[in-house]
C-alpha cells in the first residue's frame, strides 16, 4: 500500500521544527510501524536525505523507548500497544498519517521525533526506590505478601516509562507515571517505611520538571500500552494528602 506521511522534523533542541511530507510507497501490511519508517528512511538516504530520527530499541513492546503520536494518538490507534507493535494492516492504502513527537515542556525535542525523557529519571531518583543497600536482606519468604496485593503492585509496576501518558494528557501531566511507582511500593510491605516521604518527594520533582496537573480526563489510561488504571492516581493523591495533612511517618 501507499501512504502519505506528515512527519515532524527538527534539527535540534534550539531550532524550530516543521512538518515534512513524505510519500511511502509499497508498504507491506505485515510491517510494524517502525519497520515502515525504516523503509522510508532507507529510501530517503538513497536520495541523499538524512533519515528521520525516532527512538526505538527492543521492538517488542517492553523497553518503553518508542514513542510517536500517530494521527493524534500516542502509540497510534490500537489500544494497549506500543508503536513498535503496531502493524501497518491497521491502516488503509492511501491514508494520510501525521507523525509527531511527544509534546511537553518537560520533554524537549532532541531531534525529529526523539524527545528527552530524563525528567522521568529525575523523578525516580527522588524517591522511586526502597532505601536499602545490597546484602543483609531477610529471606524472600520472611514477609508474606497477600497475592492480591502483590498483583496490584505488579499492575502498577508494569509501567514501561514510555511517556505516552504525558503525551496524551491535555496538561502534559506525568501523574500516571509517578502514581504507578508510588502505588507499586504502597502495596508492598517493603515500601511502607518511606511511603510518605516517597510520595512527597516524587510529586515535588514532578512539579519541578514542569509537568502539568492531573485533569482526570482518563486519556492517559486510554493510551497506556500497559493499561495502567488511573486508580493509581487516586491512591497517590490520597497518600500525598495524608502525608501533607497528617504528617510524614519517616
Amino acid at each position: 500500500m501507499n501512504l502519505t506521511l506528515k512527519i515532524w522534523r527538527q534539527k535540534d533542541k534550539a531550532t524550530p521544527g516543521q512538518f515534512e511530507t513524505i510519500e511511502a510507497k509499497d508498504i507491506s501490511p505485515d510491517m510494524s510501524f517502525l519497520e515502515m519508517l525504516d523503509v522510508v528512511s532507507e529510501e530517503a538516504q538513497k536520495k541523499g536525505f538524512e533519515p528521520t530520527a525516532f527512538d526505538h530499541d527492543c521492538r517488542e513492546g517492553i523497553c518503553g523507548m518508542c514513542s510517536l503520536v500517530i494521527n493524534g494518538v500516542p502509540h497510534g490507534p490500537e489500544a494497549a500497544t506500543t508503536t513498535c507493535q503496531l502493524h501497518m494492516r491497521k491502516f488503509k492504502d492511501g491514508d494520510n498519517i501525521v507523525i509527531e513527537p511527544w509534546r511537553a515542556a518537560a520533554f524537549p525535542v532532541l531531534r525529529d521525533l526523539v524527545v528527552d525523557r530524563s525528567a522521568f529519571d529525575h523523578i525516580q531518583q527522588k524517591g522511586g526506590f526502597v532505601s536499602i543497600n545490597t546484602g543483609g536482606t531477610p529471606d524472600g519468604n520472611a514477609i508474606p505478601i497477600a497475592k492480591q496485593e502483590a498483583d496490584l503492585a505488579m499492575d502498577a509496576a508494569s509501567c514501561i516509562g514510555c511517556g505516552a501518558c504525558v503525551a496524551a494528557c491535555k496538561n502534559a501531566s506525568a501523574m500516571l507515571f509517578v502514581a504507578a511507582k508510588v502505588s507499586q511500593y504502597a502495596h508492598l510491605p517493603q515500601g511502607q517505611a518511606e511511603r510518605s516521604r516517597r510520595v512527597l518527594a516524587m510529586v515535588e520533582q514532578h512539579d519541578a520538571e514542569g509537568f502539568g496537573s492531573c485533569t482526570n480526563f482518563g486519556e492517559c489510561e486510554a493510551v497506556c500500552p500497559k493499561e495502567i488504571s488511573v486508580r493509581v492516581i487516586a491512591e497517590m493523591n490520597r497518600d500525598y494528602l495524608r502525608a501533607t495533612l497528617v504528617g510524614t511517618n519517616s
Binding site: R103, S173, F217
Partner: peptide
Amino acid sequence: QVTLRNKAARPIQYANVKWIKATFASR
C-alpha cells in the same frame, strides 16, 4: 493557578489531536 501551569506544560500544541476517553464535560 492550575490553568497557568498546564498551559506552560505544553507550549507547542499537536497539529492533530484525537480524544479517546475524555468527555465533553471534562474538556
